[in-house]
Design a protein around this nucleic acid. Structure first.
Length: 295
DNA sequence: CCAGACGTTGTT
DNA sequence: GTCTGG
DNA sequence: CCAGACGTTGTT
DNA sequence: GTCTGG
């Protein structure tokens, strides 16, 4: 997706230029560089996220802001930020009870824009291919009308122990473009603002591919999800409506998407689905699937 | 009390 | 930080 | 999630 | 097999 379109889609503005721990997306149409569109996003990388208020400035009217946050939520109490490497998803069914996510669910919800997402369907070991056939089929799930999706997310602020420099964002504006500090402070002492994506049970045809899916929020729920004063989000944590899922294209794609060093539009090129995969006209054994006789 | 976890996915 | 397990 | 690494002693 | 990195 084109990152610049996101400001319009989400009625958002660029984030504060000096928020510690946040890589700058740039100001886009307001005058700076935006990150290039991405086609293969991996956990631990910085990606665009929509938030209302990155830090507690309580008086100002709510403004949606877009920043680059690290995918993989690092809890504020973590001693080592690598614990966030595995916290890139949070189950919607239990997120309110997990120590790592509970506080963020109550106070720091966010939206993660995406043009779609990838999923792997595990296939029965193909006997017809002598076991050498592909054991899995990748899919790109994307709205047929090209609209932008928003995944429900949570974000968190982490500061290394002992790093005691005060300032919650608007002071000490030393906009350091690269990760490290000028004074030689290693990167593992810099603050990190990170996020996680909620998952839920798959809906409709997606169940044939994978039992889980990201919690996709319809645009009508974006405002409520982002509103930090909203107390009861149980309704928003329910799986998406079937009609939302019915608007998605389930596009079989090649296996290169599994390797993060590939990151270009060709990853989303449609391929013939493997036998037994969703959309294939052949069974897992390679036999042609015949249409059912109608009465 | 202290120590240790704190999570999800998927199980050819 | 807060909860669970020993 | 998938891809890729996974390690020490001792230096024949 | 299991962990780390992207």
């Amino acid at each position: 997706m084109d990152p610049e379109t996101l400001y319009g889609v989400f009625d958002a503005v660029p984030g504060e230029p000096s928020e510690p721990g946040v890589a700058e997306p740039g100001t886009g149409p307001y005058g700076g560089d935006m990150p290039r569109p991405r086609y293969n996003i991996a956990p631990t990388t910085d990606n665009l996220v929509v938030r209302v208020r990155p830090a507690g400035e309580d008086d100002q009217p709510p403004v949606r802001r877009i920043d680059l946050l690290r995918w993989g939520l690092v809890p504020s109490w973590a001693k080592d930020p690598s614990v966030g490497n595995r916290l890139f998803n949070a189950r919607a069914e239990s997120v309110g009870e997990k120590p790592a996510f509970r506080r963020a669910l109550a106070r720091r919800r966010c939206l993660v824009p995406a043009s779609g997402w990838y999923e792997w369907q595990k296939l029965a070991q193909g006997e017809a291919t002598g076991g050498r056939g592909p054991a899995k089929q990748a899919f790109y799930l994307t709205p047929e009308d090209g609209s932008v999706l928003a995944f429900a997310g949570l974000w968190e602020y982490w500061r290394p122990a002992g790093a005691d420099r005060g300032g919650d964002g608007d002071r000490g504006g030393d906009a350091d473009p690269d990760g490290g500090d000028r004074d030689g402070t290693p990167a593992d002492r810099t603050p990190i603002v990170s996020y996680t994506i909620l998952t839920t049970a798959s809906v409709g045809a997606l169940q044939g591919i994978h039992p889980r899916m990201p919690l996709v929020l319809p645009a009508s729920e974006w405002d409520a999800w982002l509103d930090p004063s909203r107390e009861d989000v149980a309704e928003l944590l329910e799986p998406p409506d079937e009609d939302l899922v019915a608007q998605l294209e389930l596009r079989p794609i090649g296996t290169r998407v599994g390797n993060v060093r590939f990151d270009d539009p060709s990853l989303q090129q449609q391929v013939t689905p493997a036998p037994g995969a969703v959309g294939s006209d052949r069974t897992a054994d390679g036999d042609l699937m015949l249409p059912l006789a109608l009465p």
